[in-house]
Structure formats: C-alpha cells, structure tokens
Amino acid sequence: MPMPIQALEAALREGFPDAKIEIDDLAGDGDHYRARIVSEAFKGLPRVKQHQLVYAALKGKMGGELHALALETSAPA
C-alpha cells in the first residue's frame, strides 16, 4: 500500500519540527518521492548520517509503505 504524501510530510515534520521540507511525488503513484529537508539537526553531520536520521524519523516505513525516497538534506546556510 502506498504512503500518501501527507503521511510522509507528517512523519518528517515530527522528526524535524524546525525543518523546511519540500516533497515531490516523482511518479504519481504514492511510492516514489523526493524530499528536500533543511534542518539544524543536520549541522556538522556527513550526508550519510543526515540520511540515517531521516530514515529513523520514518520509523521503519522505508522499504514497506514507502518504496523509494530520493533525499536532499542540508543544514541552513
């Protein structure tokens, strides 16, 4: 079952309440998204650790409800 964009955004906002978040549905199927997340939580962290934080915020939904998520993460400039 696909993950609605609203559910994805809610999970990301819960994990990163300070963040600027933009989500695009890449295929129109509710299964393939791109998320751009700018958060203080990423400050000083390598990209891999930033992405691990995002996956942790999704609480196991990645690979199940959510098939593909292209991530662009950064700390505010």
Rank of each mutant, 00 (worst) to 15 (best):
E65G: 15
P2S: 06
L26T: 04
F16C: 00
V54E: 00
A56I: 02
D29R: 07
R36E: 03
G15Y: 03
I37P: 07
Y55F: 06
I37M: 10
L45Y: 03
I21C: 07
K43Y: 08
M1A: 14
K49P: 10
E65K: 12
R34G: 09
M1D: 15
E65L: 15
D24R: 03
A56Q: 11
L69Q: 03
H51V: 07
G15W: 05
R13F: 08
A11S: 14
H32I: 11
A41V: 01
R47V: 11
I21Q: 08
E72I: 15
K43C: 09
L8A: 07
V54T: 03
Y55P: 05
E9Y: 11
E72N: 09
A19I: 02
I21R: 08
M62I: 14
M62T: 08
I23R: 10
V54L: 06
A41M: 03
A11R: 05
L45T: 05
A70H: 08
V48C: 12
P2G: 06
A56F: 00
R34F: 10
Q6W: 06
G63D: 06
A7L: 12
K20Q: 13
Q50I: 02
A10T: 12
L26R: 01
R47N: 12
I5L: 15
D18G: 11
G64F: 14
K49S: 09
L69S: 05
I37R: 03
M1N: 13
S74D: 12
G28D: 13
R13D: 00
M1C: 14
G28F: 08
A35F: 12
A10K: 13
G30M: 12
R34H: 15
D31C: 07
G63L: 08
G63Y: 02
T73E: 02
P17Q: 01
A10I: 09
H51R: 10
F42E: 01
A11T: 10
D18Q: 08
L69T: 02
M3E: 01
V38K: 01
I23L: 13
K43Q: 12
F16S: 01
D24K: 09
K61Y: 09
I23Y: 04
A77M: 15
L8E: 04
Q50L: 06
G28L: 15
P17F: 00
D29W: 15
Y33A: 04
P4F: 06
E9A: 13
S39T: 05
D31T: 07
Q50D: 05
P46R: 07
L12R: 02
D25A: 09
A10V: 11
R36S: 08
G60W: 12
L53P: 01
P2N: 06
A11D: 13
D18I: 09
D24P: 05
L58P: 02
R13S: 06
A41I: 01
S39V: 03
S74Y: 08
V48L: 15
E65H: 14
S39H: 03
Y55A: 07
E65F: 14
M62N: 11
Y33F: 11
I5A: 14
E9I: 11
P76E: 00
L8Q: 02
Q52H: 12
R34I: 09
E22V: 15
H51D: 02
G44H: 04
A77F: 15
